[in-house]
Every structure is written in structure tokens, then in C-alpha cells.
Nucleic acid binder design. Structure first.
Lengths: 341, 341
DNA sequence: CTGCGATTTTACAACGTTGAATCGATATCT
DNA sequence: AGATATCGATTCAACGTTGTAAAATCGCAG
């Protein structure tokens, strides 16, 4: 059986509260008693019972991270970054997968399990702007992503519009004129797809290039297979283009695959850029140009804001933070324009 | 402030223990009082305090999963599977990243945080067979992977030798004669690399083909970039081969990339098979043949064994389970042999 | 060696829950 | 009718920790 404060106290010949004082570095403990107690702790291999400590103190030292699915590489890398950032502050991370299911996203906030942690970092995918009022729980929440703005929670997000604009400008700067889009969402205005499409349109507009819906391919989800399907769709339409903006990296990879199968050279015939800077984009053929949305900064900001909110729940009004981004040019956009699809 | 049993009891006009009985579906509660209590629970939005429950009951309803890094796709998919399997049993999962660092792997087992969960599923990468005796903690452990066998813990592993043998035989069955290996570990006997290389050798031996160390490329880590480096190494050696066995999928992908850059066609000139059946292998060009090591089964078996061990820690001697595997033939091994590198 | 302030240690009461034991009140049996 | 189950609800004591407040010990001046 695990040793308790009482066991240590008995061995050391002091009261259990003195042992507690030693462990918590209470100032008024005589050196000789501290030594006695530490000897007893070592002897018994005592470890504090964190559950009891949590009950008494009201906080657990854990946070919950709720996201759609770890098998989606973007979320795996996000989770990696959040766990690292949390570890730096001595926190552990409890992961809940929602499967992008509306019901499960709501359950995460309502579940009593949430109280096994001190706060929630929540990346919803099914809930949207119309659900802003439902974002609440009995621990502080930091929202991630582009689904919901102006809720009553703190929010960390990437700069989708400017970043997508920069990605598009990167292609335009290479001399590409007809930039197809892979992965738009029908009728979406906010949300990653809507915002990135807006950035794309802004870039075109700034150069006086008319927007052409004929080279924009719509998908339902951002899964790998859909990038391929969207590119098939574009090729079937018989439209011409000399570049592709994949609204995320997996879509872009699917699109590259279909282009190559169809005999187009990337980037010679068609330049391709993605979005997210997944690790794997460094190892595809060709390597994929993309936008680094500042994942580490997102994770660290989220942790920092959550801790501030835990310490002082009603301190400041909800904050909205946008992280820095960076266009990463790789092989898929190297070299000059040649022909087109 | 969150409502407690006492608050509910006051509102319902019963003792707090009766409220507890209602919540725990204790049989002897009159329907009318149950209704009263349920009304009060709803009215106050009462949620049980799981920390207090844990302290009292001695278990938490959480398990810890310790793995190297979520940014490695294999581990992301493993974590996904473990979380799903745990969710089916009503458990939450707390993730610790060790970064494949020996010190952190040992810390995970020694940390008092581990007691915030009821058990540990541990996939070590730095600890090895010589550390078998160090695998212990004050919660039950289920070990995953190929680093350590015959410890005093339960262990779930894939059938590395037979699966690698089957992958090699798949290539041989296509008529390939000279099968290069990418990703061997110098001097390793057990461990994923050592075991898979053994399976490869067994397959050759069974067909009377001599083993040739000249077409085996060694690497230090199984990171993406190393598959590429290993293939460069093979090409530099000037040896000829008509197939490649990548000891995992990311290595195989790196190898494919280099082969394509060098002008070889996959699979026409060189057939390639990987190992792990990562989601992404379905969307590369060409799609990558691989071995499905039974990840879902690994996760579910690990959870089941852990729960059994939690219920009855000393019940049975440590168990060793191997999951079923399956060769998945995709484009990278389709068609017949042509020429070679 | 007594008294007093400062330092060190201890006793006690929580935190919110569940299990064991208890106590009344009905219902059941002889 | 009286003894005995059975059901329903309650009381009490834990689980292991920390904060508060009181008690014990110490050092030192008078």
C-alpha cells in the first residue's frame, strides 16, 4: 500500500502536519526536523496523493484538450504542441476526441469528467458561430480555430485571411495568373475555408484579377481523399489553371497526386501551395510549399491564457489573439510558369 | 459555486446520503423520493465531484498513455485508437510525451502524476531489454512495442517477424529477386528494426535466396528524412535491386521520393512496401503497399488487459499478446518486374 | 529563574464523496 | 398478536491532504 503523510509522520516521530509542512516548503521548520522527515520520506518512498491534494486545493494540475481526431495530422501536431507547452508549466493533458460530432462536442463541455482538469482548450469542428452561446463549462475555456468568434471565452486563432492572401500572392509573384482553389466550403463565410477563400479573393482583387468560381472546387470535409476528388472535378470541368491553392496541406497533397497521375508536372505545369505546414510536407515529392500558421505560438498562447483565466476567472473581458504566420516556399512552387492545365 | 450532495439534499428535503444513493442507483429508494431528488439535481445543475469520488473510491476513471511524440504519425494513430478504445469503456486518457528520452521515460513511471490515473499504457522507445526490471510503477502497466519482452508487465505487440516475412514474400511473389531494406538498425536483434529484418531474412532463406548486406541500408532513427538518406546511400553504392522493403511507412515514403527524383518508376522499376498502414499511405503517389499491424486490436487489447489488471493486480502471471496482421497491396507493388536500379 | 516575544509544532476542521452500520417503519409469517 | 424479515432512509466514519488557529518550545532580557 502507498505510504501517506501519517505513515511518514509515524516513522519520523513528528505530527503528520509537520510532514506536510516539509513537503510544501513551509518556512518555519527546523533543519533537524526537516532532515528527519526527509529521511523518512525516502525510506518509505512516499509520494503525495494528488487526488487528495486536488480535493483539498480545488485544482488538479491537468487540463483537457478537446479536438476532432488525432489521426488528422493537423490535430496530432497541434496536440503535440499543446502537450509540450503544458509540460513546460508542469501540467498534464487529458485528450478528448469529439470526432467532429456536434453532440460529442457539447458533451465535452457538459461532462463531469471535465472537472478532473482545471480548464479546457477546445477546438470545435461541428459547432459554429450560431452556437457561440453554448460555449461554456464549469472550468475556463480557451477556444481554438475559426468556427466561433466573439463568444464569451478567450480565443486563439491563426490569421487566416492575411495568411491565405499571402499564399495567393506568393503564387501571383511567381507569375501565375489562373489560381485554382481546392477545398472551399459551399456558402461558408467564417470557418477556415471561408476565411482562406476570402484571403484568396483579396489577393486577386488587389491585383485587379477577376474572381472565377469556375476554378474553385468545393468539398465537404478536409480529409485526404477529398483533395484528390476536388482535383478530378477541376480536370473534368476542362478549365485551365497554372496554380492551385489547397486550403490545407492534405487537400493539396491529394491534388498533387491527381495532377501527377494526369501527367502534369508540379511545379512546372501547375504550382501548388498548401496551408498548415505539416511535418510531412517536407518529405513529399515535390516538397510542398505551404503556410506555417504558428502552431507553437497557438499552443503556448492558449496555455498562457488558460492559466491566467484559471487564476482569475473574471479578470478581463474575453480576449481574441491572432498568431503570426509565414509563407514557406518549397519545391511545389519553385521555378517559373510554363504551361497549364 | 458548484452544487454538492449537501445542497441537493437541502433542496430535496432529504439527507445527503439519500442523494448519493439516488445517483449510484442504489436499489432501496422510494420512487417518490427519487423523483424529488432528481428534480433538485436538475434544478441545481448538480454534477458529482469526481475528485472527491476518486479519493474515496481509490480509482479515477482515467488512464495514462505514454508515447514518444504525437507528431510521429504512427503514434498519433496509435493514440487515436487507444482513446477510442478507452472511451468505449468510459475512460479518459491522459497523454505523456517522452520524446524518446530515457530520462523522461523513467520519470513517467516514477511521477506522482501517474496516480491521477488508474493504469499506464507505455510505449517506450529509449528503454530497452536491459531495462526490463525498471518497468514498474504504483499502477498496473501494459507495455506496447518491441523494445522490451519478458518484463513483469503485460505486453501487447505486433507480429513483427511473421509480418515482415509476409511483406517480403509479397515482393518475392511478384517475381522480385533483389529486395533492398531501408531502415535497419546496426546490431539490433530485438526492437522493431531487428525483428523485421529477421522476418525479411527468414523469407529469403525459405526460398533459398542468399542474404546480401550490400542492399541493406542502416539508419539511426525512423524519421521521414532518414528513409530518403538511406535510399541515397543505396543508390550511391551502385548496387542493383528491384524492390525495397521500408521497415516502416515513413521510411518507405522517403525512399520512394528519392527513387522518383532519381528517375526510377515505382513500381515498374522498383516495387516498394512499407510497414504500419498509416492513413497517409492511401494518398501518396503511388499509393504505398504496407502491412497493417492491427493497431485497433493493439489498442483494444491493451485497454482490456489493463482493466483486468486494475481489477485484479496479481491475478495472473504477465501476459504476452500478439495481434493479427495483414499485407495491404497497393499501387507501389502492383504489376510485374521490369528492370532494376 | 521568571516572563515574554518569536519560532516551531501540533490539533482540528474542512474538501465532497461512498461504505458500513444503524434505526424506524411496514409488511410477512406463525 | 408477537416475532421477524424487508425496505427506506439516516448517521457516522473514513479517503489523504492543506489552512487556520492554538499550543508548545525556545532564546533571551530583566
Amino acid at each position: 500500500m502507498a505510504a501517506t503523510l501519517h505513515d511518514v509522520a509515524r516513522v519520523a516521530g513528528v505530527s503528520f502536519k509537520t510532514v506536510s509542512n516539509v513537503i510544501n516548503h513551509h518556512p518555519h521548520v527546523r533543519d533537524t526536523t526537516r532532515a528527519k522527515v526527509e529521511k523518512a520520506i525516502a525510506e518509505l518512498g512516499y509520494r503525495p496523493n494528488l487526488t487528495a491534494r486536488s480535493l483539498r486545493s480545488g485544482h488538479t494540475g491537468a487540463i483537457t484538450l478537446a479536438l476532432p481526431q488525432l489521426r488528422l495530422p493537423y490535430f496530432a501536431e497541434l496536440a503535440d504542441a499543446v502537450i509540450e507547452a503544458a509540460a513546460k508549466r508542469g501540467l498534464v493533458v487529458l485528450i478528448e476526441q469529439t470526432g467532429a460530432d456536434r453532440k460529442r462536442e457539447l458533451e465535452v463541455m457538459a461532462s463531469p469528467r471535465l472537472k478532473m482538469s482545471d480548464g479546457l482548450i477546445f477546438s470545435p469542428l461541428a459547432l459554429g458561430q450560431e452556437d457561440a452561446d453554448l460555449i461554456k463549462a464549469d472550468v475556463p475555456i480557451v477556444l481554438l480555430g475559426e468556427r466561433i468568434f466573439d463568444s464569451s471565452s478567450d480565443h486563439v486563432t491563426m490569421q487566416n485571411v492575411p495568411a491565405a492572401r499571402a499564399a495567393t500572392e506568393h503564387l501571383l509573384d511567381l507569375g501565375r495568373k489562373r489560381i485554382a482553389v481546392v477545398g472551399a466550403h459551399e456558402g461558408e463565410v467564417i470557418g477556415s475555408a471561408g476565411l482562406r477563400l476570402r484571403g484568396y479573393r483579396e489577393a486577386l482583387e488587389a491585383r485587379g484579377i477577376p474572381y472565377d468560381d469556375g476554378i474553385v472546387a468545393y468539398v465537404v470535409d478536409w480529409h485526404r481523399s477529398n483533395g484528390a476528388a476536388a482535383m478530378h472535378d477541376l480536370l473534368d470541368r476542362g478549365v485551365s489553371f497554372d496554380a492551385v491553392f489547397g486550403l490545407n496541406d492534405t487537400l493539396a497533397q491529394g491534388a498533387v497526386r491527381v495532377l501527377q497521375e494526369a501527367g502534369y508536372r508540379v511545379p512546372d505545369d501547375v504550382a501548388v501551395i498548401g496551408f498548415d505546414d505539416l511535418d510531412e510536407t517536407r518529405y513529399t515529392l515535390p516538397t510542398l510549399s505551404t503556410v506555417d500558421p504558428g502552431r507553437t505560438e497557438i499552443a503556448e498562447t492558449a496555455i498562457r491564457m488558460l492559466l491566467e483565466r484559471i487564476k482569475d476567472p473574471a479578470g478581463t473581458p474575453p480576449r481574441e489573439v491572432e498568431t503570426a504566420f509565414r509563407v514557406v516556399a518549397r519545391e511545389s512552387t519553385m521555378g517559373s510558369a510554363a504551361g497549364a492545365a
